[in-house]
Structure formats: C-alpha cells, structure tokens
C-alpha cells in the first residue's frame, strides 16, 4: 500500500500537453494503477473541449488514502506535480499556475536547455528535465511512456514496477507490438532524467489563475455574434507541431501553386506581380510558421522537391518564417 506524503489532503498531478502526445492515456494508466494496485483512492479526468489533435489539453489526477472519498470534480488547481509534455507550453503562465512550493516539475526538453519560463517557479521546486521526445523517437514509442518512467522515479510513493505493469497491460491486448518498445522507453525514463537545481526564483506557492473571459455580459455583442471577421489570424499554433516543419528551397520552387491547394493551415506566403485580375506572375516566398501545424502535406504534393522536412530546432521557425499578415506584428 502506497503512503502519501500528506494524508490530510489529496496529492494532485496535472499533465500539460497537446492532443496526440498521450497525456490523457498516461494519466489514466497512472491513476488506474494507483487505485487498483497501490491501495489508493483516486480520480482522473482531462480538460475537454472539442479539441482536435494538436491543441492544448490538461489531464488531472487526484489521489488520496483508500478510505477517503473523492467528491470534488473540479480541475486540479494546486498541483504537487506538473508534467509538461511539450516544452513550448512552458511559455504559458497557466502551465505552472498554482504550483506548490515544494512541488515537482517534469518537463521534456533536450539536455542543456533551460527554458525561460522556469524562473517563474518557486525556489524550492524540484525541477526535472528528460528528453522524452527524443527517447520516444529512438525507441519507437511515445513520450508518455518515457514520462511515466520519470514520474515513477520522481514521485517516491509511486511503485515503478506496478506502473510499468499497468503500462504493459494497457497495450497488451490492442497493440501487443508496442509493449516491448514502451517498456524500453519507460526504463530510459526512469534513468535518463536530470535534476536541475536552483531554477525557480519565486517564493512559496504560485497563485492559482482563473482567467476571465474576454467578453462579459455587459460587453459581449448580443447573441454571441463575432464581429472581428478572420480574427483566428491572431492565434499562434506553433505548439501543434511535433518536431518537424516544412522548409522551402527557393532555388527549386517553380511557384506552381500546387502546395497552396492542399495546405490545411493556409499558411503559405505568396506575392503577386501585376495583380489585375489574374496576376502576371506569383512567387511563393515561404511559410508563416505561426499557423503551420507541420502536417507536411505540401512536401508530399510538391512536384520539384522544393519543400523539405526539417527537424525543428529552437529558433528555426522564427528565422525562416515569413509573415502572412505583417500588420499583426506591428
């Protein structure tokens, strides 16, 4: 029977992720193992909207002693543990909102890199980095298997063996071929992480954030109408990419327009000469990566190989990107 650090309150975990990285599944595996095999009581749920693959998702786990009923169904706001599945999420204040002074933050990122957002953490936070994306790719598994391994080490009352069993079981029936690969990823998760000392600068628990909506009942246009047509152009969807982006080689591009017909993110940037009404010529100048979700359909379609797939290293998108709507940057 696992014993929690504090029996007078729930032990709470929050996974910060984007759809498709397996945060919901990881939360479910962990909570199921805790409740059915570690003698704890617990609850698990995720934040749902109509989110598609690639949009932000949070998964919540609440654990308590076996005889403690769990009654609240509200989201976890003061987490003991935050696991960040995509390092770009560290830039959002909501990711670490409500973080407890002695909490543990696990984030995925390459060795040596300390993202800016981490200084906002409490001074006493335990900060752990693991290159889950790379390990998952190398093991042909998914980041969630790696991160479960790291969690098992970082959270003392979690039993790594039980957790691994639960992970295996989750895949055994439906995807038996994945079991060995997940297991390898999990094991590397238990060993290949680094503890980063002296990261946070804040004192005490971080405040909870419950952001107000943009509009209120005294200000919103009646009937829910939206009057700023095309305003999704303000959104930044860079976090939807999972490691790859398309890069244009202007030397090879014949400006044929094929890629534009299949780009779901409408993010290719063109200039036209003699714009009346059919232009004399057009030029593809590049990609606005703010909107590109990295599907790579343009590469598939390009007849000349002018679009190629590149691994997304920090800063690459900023260096190569072209603004589709320069007025938004002003």
């Amino acid at each position: 029977m696992a014993s929690l650090p504090d029996n007078d309150r729930f032990f709470e975990l929050r996974f910060e992720s984007i759809g498709g990285l397996g945060a919901h599944a990881a939360g479910q595996i962990l909570a199921t193992a805790a409740v059915l095999r570690m003698g704890l009581n617990g609850a698990h749920f995720s934040s749902y909207g109509s989110e598609k693959k690639g949009s932000a998702i949070k998964s919540f786990i609440r654990l308590g002693p076996a005889d403690q009923p769990i009654r609240t169904s509200a989201p976890v706001e003061s987490p003991d543990v935050v696991v960040v599945f995509h390092r770009a999420l560290l830039g959002h204040p909501a990711t670490i909102a409500g973080f407890r002074a002695n909490g543990t933050l696990i984030f995925t990122g390459p060795p040596g890199e300390i993202p800016d957002g981490l200084a906002q953490l409490p001074r006493t936070a335990n900060v752990i980095r693991i290159d889950a994306q790379r390990i998952a790719a190398e093991e042909e598994s998914r980041p969630n298997a790696v991160l479960l391994g790291t969690l098992a080490e970082a959270v003392p009352f979690l039993d790594a063996e039980i957790l691994l069993d639960a992970l295996n079981e989750a895949f055994a029936r439906k995807r038996p071929e994945a079991v060995a690969r997940n297991q390898a990823a999990f094991h590397r998760g238990t060993t290949e992480f680094e503890r980063l000392p002296d990261i946070g600068r804040a004192e005490g628990d971080l405040p909870i954030i419950r952001p107000d909506p943009f509009w209120g009942y005294q200000t919103a246009p009646l009937g829910g109408v939206v009057l700023n047509a095309g305003s999704t152009a303000w959104n930044d969807l860079s976090t939807s990419r999972t490691g790859w982006l398309p890069v244009l080689d202007l030397d090879k591009c014949i400006h044929c327009g094929m890629c534009d017909m299949v780009c779901p993110d409408l993010c290719l940037v063109w200039t036209a000469e003699g714009n009346e009404p059919v232009p004399a010529a057009v030029r593809l100048t590049g990609v606005d990566y703010r909107y590109c979700k990295g599907c790579l359909r343009c590469i598939e379609t390009c007849p000349t190989g002018a679009m190629t797939r590149e691994a997304e290293t920090p800063g690459l998108a900023e260096r190569l990107g072209q603004p589709l709507f320069p007025q938004l940057d002003g």
């Binding site: 598609k52 693959k53 305003s231 999704t232 303000w234 959104n235 969807l237 780009c263 779901p264």
Partner: peptide, 14 residues
Amino acid sequence: APGHGGCPGCGVFP
C-alpha cells in the same frame, strides 16, 4: 483565415 483549430493535415481546409 488561418489560425483555426483543425488537426494537422485536415482535409476540410483544402
């Protein structure tokens, strides 16, 4: 406009 929430690769936008 771009900036919508469709999945990567979604055919609706083409």
